[in-house]
């Protein structure tokens, strides 16, 4: 009994120095990867939000009104607010880029203080936010494809041949935002594998 209660302490004393060094070394290496991925996620999603948020195109068509009358001017503006999916896309990207900035700040503070519990919370929220952003990307892409190709079964006609610039800008935003969600995915994988690496290391030190 005495033996059992004593042993872990002595092992701790032996293990602490090398383990702390190893953990801080490991944290520093992950530090860069996580910071870069969070920054990339921030930049890509904010670009996605801005590209769609400022996406509008106005076109004018001249209609023949009659032999003696001047032609009628028909002006149509394409805005992202006309499509609820695009509104969702902009809001989701804005939320995710805010989250990326806030989580980066939290991460930097926590790694400076050497807190371990926060990284676990961050992994889970990263995964949730990634799912949220991917659902917005999926929705925008699905509706964008109908806008480009139309759907003959449902009698939904294509609109992108009239508003080329609008559609291309929207497509670029969807691609950038998808890359942003891939960054979040890599971030989750990186932090999980880092957790595992720390665990392995602490096992090696303990035994």
């Amino acid at each position: 009994m005495e033996n059992n209660s004593k042993l872990p302490k002595s092992m701790d004393v032996v293990g602490t120095g090398t383990m702390e060094a190893a953990i801080s070394k490991g944290q520093r290496r992950v530090h860069h990867g996580e910071v870069v991925l969070r920054l990339m996620g921030f930049v890509l999603t904010i670009m996605g939000a801005i590209l769609v948020g400022f996406d509008r195109q106005t076109r004018t068509w001249l209609l023949e009104a009659g032999a003696n009358l001047p032609p009628l001017e028909l002006q149509i503006t394409a805005k992202y607010q006309y499509m609820s999916t695009m509104v969702f896309f902009v809001i989701a990207n804005a939320i995710v880029c805010t989250y990326a900035a806030v989580s980066l700040a939290f991460y930097l503070m926590a790694s400076r203080d050497g807190k371990c519990s926060l990284s676990h919370v961050l992994i889970v929220t990263d995964a949730l936010i990634m799912g949220f952003l991917l659902s917005a990307d999926g929705a925008a892409a699905a509706v964008g494809i109908i806008g480009r190709d139309g759907n003959s079964h449902l009698q939904w006609h294509r609109v992108c041949y009239m508003f080329n610039k609008f559609c291309n800008q929207g497509a670029a935003a969807v691609v950038l935002s998808t890359l942003g969600s891939v960054c979040l995915l890599l971030l989750v994988a990186l932090s999980a594998s880092n957790l595992h690496k720390k665990l392995n290391h602490s096992h090696v030190v303990a035994t």
Binding site: T85, F88, M130, G131, A136, G138, A139, V143, L185, A192
Partner: peptide
């Protein structure tokens, strides 16, 4: 996480349409 991403994007796409 990978499956979550796939399912979330599919849900979003189908939900949008």
């Amino acid at each position: 996480v990978l499956a979550l991403g796939i399912v979330a994007s599919a849900t979003g796409a189908a939900g949008g349409v």
